[in-house]
Amino acid sequence: MTEDRIPLDDLMVFHQLARSLNSSLDLNTILRTILDQMERIITADMWALLMFDEGRQDLYYAIASGNGEDALRDLRVRAGEGIAGWVVERGETLIVPESENDDPRLRETLSADRHSVRSAIAMPLRGRKGVQGVIEILNPRASQMSDYTIAFLHILCDHAAIAIENAHDVARIQQLTITDDATGLYNVRHLYKMLEQELDRGRYMRQPLSLAFIDLDRFKLVNDVHGHLIGSELLGRVGTRLKQLSREKDMCFRYGGDEFVILMPDTAASDAIVLATALHRELMNTHFRMSNGLDLTASASVGLATCPPENPAVHAIIGAADARMYAVKSNGRGKVRGA
């Protein structure tokens, strides 16, 4: 009686695969490793990895290689739609050989006007918390769709799902360390880190950096009159509103207490005063509906600083903006003051 054994070369490939996927906690590095392994295992027209977006309940192409990969950047796939949508909805592997190319799921995949999808392999990336995404291989060569290859792909999916889940867990933990609990904005620790990075980048790119220091006026009265729970809720609402009113490239931080900071990269002093004035006006006109039915508004004093030409040091730019904010408070509150 003979015993089937896995060749040593293949065992080494399995070993290298596991090491590669578990040697990094960076999601992009893991996705690239998965894609590289797919291309090694099987010849096809396209290899792709779709990630499941829990908020939107659909899939997006996180990484792809092959014919037409550029067209996938903004493509979304609904659960139940096409090959990948079927897999994420059911959590099962789907293999459609070319002999069954009348399968309607093929026609729904990538849209027929851009690609001719004749066959496909799609497998779920299933972790502890459910399906993370889908590996999708389009038009694989029929000669390579053996049981051995499919088994290898299943091993790849198992290792990939664990690696992706670990990367997500680490990212969530890192996010918690840089996030303020009350407002959901970045915390002061992250402010100093990002300010240092942006100052270095500004020096290298010869681009200005502006900073707005925002202090809510008479916020202590909110706590004294309505209680600290309402005060904390208002801080959270103000933080959300500041983020809404800022540009996409700006970064919002809670500095401490009722103080906030907004970093404005690539923004000269003249532009910063215009942006901060508009933001301040909108903030002052915002009515915040509290959970107990109260309708509150928030006044604020704002100081601005820009580097260069000021001292290009972290504490110097914060100190300059802070000093201008206090100058506003000393002269009636509720205004914006630049350099």
Rank of each mutant, 00 (worst) to 15 (best):
L195N: 07
L195H: 02
E196C: 06
Q197W: 06
Q197A: 12
Q197G: 13
E198L: 03
E198T: 13
L199D: 15
L199R: 08
R201L: 08
R201S: 13
R201D: 08
R203W: 10
R203Q: 14
Y204E: 14
M205W: 12
P208N: 01
L209K: 01
L209V: 02
S210E: 05
S210I: 05
L211W: 10
A212P: 15
A212W: 08
A212M: 15
A212V: 11
F213N: 07
F213R: 10
F213K: 11
D215Y: 00
D215W: 10
D215V: 13
L216T: 07
D217T: 01
R218I: 04
R218C: 03
R218N: 15
F219Y: 03
F219L: 11
K220N: 09
K220T: 14
L221K: 12
V222F: 01
V222E: 00
N223P: 11
D224A: 12
V225G: 00
G227D: 11
G227A: 01
G227S: 04
G231F: 09
G231A: 14
S232W: 00
S232K: 06
E233I: 06
G236N: 11
R237H: 14
V238S: 11
G239F: 12
G239M: 09
T240A: 12
R241F: 00
R241C: 07
R241H: 06
L242C: 07
L242K: 10
L242R: 13
K243C: 02
Q244L: 07
Q244H: 12
L245V: 07
S246N: 02
R247S: 05
K249E: 05
M251I: 15
M251G: 04
C252N: 12
R254H: 06
R254K: 09
G256H: 03
G256E: 07
G257E: 04
G257P: 14
G257S: 04
E259L: 02
F260H: 09
F260I: 03
V261S: 10
I262S: 02
I262W: 03
L263E: 08
L263P: 00
L263Q: 00
L263M: 11
L263H: 01
M264V: 08
P265M: 01
P265Y: 08
D266K: 11
D266Q: 02
T267Q: 00
A268D: 15
S270Y: 02
D271N: 01
A272I: 00
V274L: 11
V274K: 04
V274T: 14
L275P: 00
L275K: 10
A276E: 08
A276Y: 05
A278K: 15
A278H: 14
A278F: 01
L279T: 10
R281M: 15
E282Y: 04
L283Q: 04
M284A: 07
N285F: 13
T286V: 04
H287M: 08
